[in-house]
Amino acid sequence: MTTIQPNDGDFKNLRSQDRPAEPSVDLFVPKPLDATVREELAAPAPTFWKEARERLFKNKGAVVSLVLLIILGAMSLIGPSMNEFTYREQHIPHSNLPPKVAGLEWLGFDGKDVNGVDQYAQRGVETNYWFGTDEFGRDLWTRVWKGTQISLFIALVAAFLDLVIGVIYGGISAYYGGRIDNVMQRIIEILTGIPNLIVIILFILILEPGIRSIILAMIITGWVGMARVVRGQMLQLKGQEFVLASRTLGASDSRLMRKHLLPNVMGPIIVTVMFTIPTAIFFEAFLSFIGLGLQAPLASLGVLIEDGYDAIRSFPYKLLIPAVVISLVMICFNLLADGLRDALDPKMRK
């Protein structure tokens, strides 16, 4: 390790095992490294992924989250086509109908508005809108799932681009080291000094609103965290024997990186990506909420929440449904990321 960064703006990267084990306050000195033990640890490398998978599946929260995420993801794809409506089709006479599902009346899906009047009966509407309709008479079921789809899409693409940039940048920085590393680290240091949300807002302002701009604005500062993780991991690995061995055998730089370094830093990378996704979902929703979002009639969860917030008193379902969906997505991603981190954390491998 070169310099220690006690704070890097992201506590997740600063886990206690990164700190050197020098004498503590109580003058206890950690046990000296035992070379044989290390060999033992390094031995089960081929079964690492299998082990990690087993550990992950033991974590109930993570498994439930994974299943829920798969369901939510599937719904976001098939949900919009589960009934005859499209996300943009308007039907003015059916505006602002509360949710109604036959058989789920006891859950509040009874088609009654805040005053307890059954709007379906009053207006003679035959069709049941499962999540109700908005003021244009658009089906909210379709729109919520379409919105989930768009939110997930934005988050996944943003996370993926963060990953690509971060891995390349961090990889180069760690691999070449020396002056290159120094310069690249100074750049990162300055970038982390910038409050990212403000930067995102400013960029959205000058770009044309739309999915592309949102993604672009989010990756401007988003890749930095990934770059740091990759660099840190690579630095640790660089000094290890198998890298040295491979180099001695004459492996080229790119081969070394691809074959030896990258696979070994996959764990932390996956964990970082998993934490990036909910952050991206949050940012997208945040931007939509303050009115810097997508082009209508496209809707993301953030857009739906913003629409719903305006009508919170008269039509609370417009807020509650997308709010529940976005919260579920975020919870699942966080729990799954937690589970993955525990599963992939080498410290847990005993």
């Binding site: 943009r88 089709e89 308007q90 003021e135 244009f136 209508a296 009639p297 305006d310």
Partner: peptide
């Protein structure tokens, strides 16, 4: 908000 609503309505 107002203009976006009107826009969406006009579109349809």
């Amino acid at each position: 908000d107002e203009m976006k609503k009107v826009g969406e309505y006009l579109q349809a």
